[in-house]
Design a protein around this nucleic acid. Structure first.
Lengths: 180, 180
DNA sequence: GGGTTCATGTAATCGGTTACATGATTCG
DNA sequence: CGAATCATGTAACCGATTACATGAACCC
């Protein structure tokens, strides 16, 4: 049920097209909630049916018309009501750890290469997060409250990634040792 | 598709009933892959149909018969083949961060209480992980390779949780400031 | 007496993924 | 010349959640 509210939250900041929301799920929001464009378009349709969002159609030459969605009063109320309900604990699904857990069924070399691949991706993601922090949240304490809260979600990404990087070191040390 | 392999990985260590696998998903495996008992029973049924697992039925008085599942040669092969396929990046779904992202739609006091609740849960989980580490992985470098890899997955839990705890401090500091 | 543990499952529904479809513009 | 970006969606399928069902044993 939370995709619904993640979309409403994103629209709470500013009106957006489905495409833009999907992009936000690739970048900022995506750190803590993932969704594909198909899911987003479907959910936007339902939200419009329920009167939680409304859209303005803007024709374009050669492209499908932009549908710029915004919150209605009803949508804002629904979001506010949801905000005070208890949040479920975070859900993690990590295929790499499943593989390590079953590690003895593969050669350690295979695991090692895969761990290094994920490490590289993590290093890159961390660099992106750091760039965003430097660019938009440098003088953080002077920003508006909503921006400071967004910064806080980015901080979670940064801290979690840093922990992941430390873990990759441990993982590669162990795999190196087991590989001999 | 990975639930299938998470189950096979768990059975790779020792034969288990569906109930025991479900409990393992609440504790150890559950840090990196979550599944309900309904999902597990269904998947075990499919795995048995496909000949990847087999089970022995042990009648019990007053309880449903235990079905102790174990890997077949075919299941072991399927697991080994999967091990060398690339792992998808980890997926995170964190409702609390969705709420913070949309923070200005609630009173800061509401958010604060919720953050504190999650912090308390995190402190407790960390204590559990530490207890498991002290109990089973104390003299880690002397253990068998498969146990050392399990320890590695626990390490990821410990490091990620520690990062979460640091983040909770930042979060409460900010919410306190915004609340005034 | 009431809650937790053990132990199995079914059925309905909802959420998420994969595959398909279209087509102009911009960048390397 | 090909890939990425912008911009919309549909359809089929698979994965996950919620609700329901049963019942004994054990602990507080």
């Amino acid at each position: 049920m939370s995709l619904r509210y993640a979309i409403l939250a994103s629209l709470g900041n500013r009106a957006q097209t489905g495409y833009e929301i999907a992009r936000a799920f690739d970048r900022g929001v995506g750190y803590f909630w993932q969704a594909s464009h198909q899911q987003i378009y479907r959910e936007l349709g339902r939200l419009a049916e329920d009167g939680a969002v409304e859209f303005e159609t803007i024709d374009q030459a050669g492209k499908p018309a932009r549908k710029v969605y915004g919150l209605t009063a009803r949508g804002r109320d629904a979001l506010r009501a949801w905000m005070t309900t208890p949040a479920a604990p975070p859900v993690v699904k990590d295929e790499l750890l499943v593989r390590l857990y079953a590690g003895t069924h593969a050669g350690p070399g295979d695991l090692r290469a895969e761990v290094e691949r994920h490490q590289a991706a993590c290093v890159q993601r961390q660099a992106e997060y750091e760039a965003i922090e430097a660019r938009y949240f440098d003088d953080a304490d002077k920003l508006a409250p909503e921006l400071r809260l967004m910064h806080l979600t980015l901080r979670k990404g940064l801290l979690t990634n840093a922990a992941a990087l430390a873990w990759f070191e441990e993982a590669l040390a162990l795999l190196g040792e087991l590989d001999g």
